[in-house]
Design a protein around this nucleic acid. Structure first.
Lengths: 190, 190
DNA sequence: TTGACAAGTGAACGTTCGTTCACTTATAAT
DNA sequence: ATTATAAGTGAACGAACGTTCACTTGTCAA
């Protein structure tokens, strides 16, 4: 690894830990140099390399390639080798998955009722409150004072909550449905 | 929404956009006040409320409750109501899912071969390079110059790559296996 | 061996930073 | 109406900020 990428790695680690970029004085230590001018010129290189941006006021701002994860392409279609990696796009999973952080929350799934939709016990579902629930959406709803995750079947005439597991039965809510939110994403950690 | 949470929301939005906390001067605008002292004392309240921390040097540092997503509990076990939300934990999905950002990357899944493991076409898998692949792990491997995602079957005597779909056949690698990495997570966006 | 260029040093600069002060205005309870 | 408390004003401070300067050192090709 060359010096540029070593220092970028150090910046990435600092950002991960402190959730901000270091000041030039702090970079003196991180880069193991003694002059802020050395830092200043190195930062320009890192900016050229696209890992950091400057805003209108000249403040440093980490680019997605610094705080994000690389996207290397499609599996089953071959994926790039390390040589091409430098050019790879990067994203933050938070930014990718969650549009409205304020209205979103996570729930851990414990049942098997949505297994055929690829939602397994232990998965975290990302739920957005206040979003319109459309036919076919996976939603969180309250039935008999119990919260449950189901697929929403909704036509002009009737409403049903469908599990994605033949062992479970559909639910046909009598009263109006108490909606907890729409599932906008699923994450699983091994 | 009270003034405290309005201002916290503004800070959250600023952080999401700029990936850093605003300076006191910038907060003058965000909070619509004219004195830095008003900002100063408000920040102390926000620190008390646990949305921001100060490091040893007194620098502001966003807490998980500012940049993360709330975790409200388990579905199928009831989940907290908005009243209790304030106390909820919050995490960043990036931090939750990815241990080693430098060695990790994302791949979009296009086949159906892992459908019974809850990995569906369009899902993004998080792959960590250089991690030891153990029996039972889901891995990325190269077979006949094609990358594929399979479950690793590995005993002292034999190695196999198992799909999680009865329509696909297990693969018994002849030569040594070219490992792309271990799948440490899956994310899906609807 | 020389020359050219890249990288680091150390001092200096004007600007912006967070913090503190004394004071004023708003808000709400008695 | 009085009073206590909370919230905001505006000026001031030293410290830390990013940037620039002239200069030195290191690296490598000609």
């Amino acid at each position: 690894m060359d010096k540029l990428h070593k220092r970028i790695l150090v910046l990435r680690q600092f950002y991960e830990k402190n959730k901000r970029l270091p000041s030039y004085a702090e970079m003196l230590v991180l880069f193991k140099v003694k002059s802020k001018n050395a830092v200043f010129r190195f930062i320009n290189k890192i900016i050229e390399a696209g890992f950091i941006n400057k805003d209108e006021a000249g403040r440093l701002m980490p680019a997605a390639s610094l705080f994000g994860v690389k996207i290397l392409g499609n599996i089953e279609a071959g994926f790039p080798t390390p040589a091409e990696e430098e050019l790879a796009d990067a994203i933050s999973l938070d930014d990718y998955l969650i549009k409205n952080k304020q209205a979103s929350f996570l729930l851990k799934v414990s049942g098997n009722s949505m297994i055929n939709a690829g939602i397994r016990p232990g998965d975290l579902v990302i739920v957005e409150r206040g979003k319109e629930a459309k036919h076919g959406d996976i939603i969180i709803a309250s039935i008999d004072n119990e919260w449950t995750i189901k697929r929403l079947y909704k036509t002009e005439k009737k409403i049903a909550l469908l599990p994605e597991n033949p062992k479970f039965k559909p639910i046909y809510p009598k009263n109006n449905l108490l909606l907890g939110g729409v599932v906008v994403g699923v994450v699983r950690k091994y």
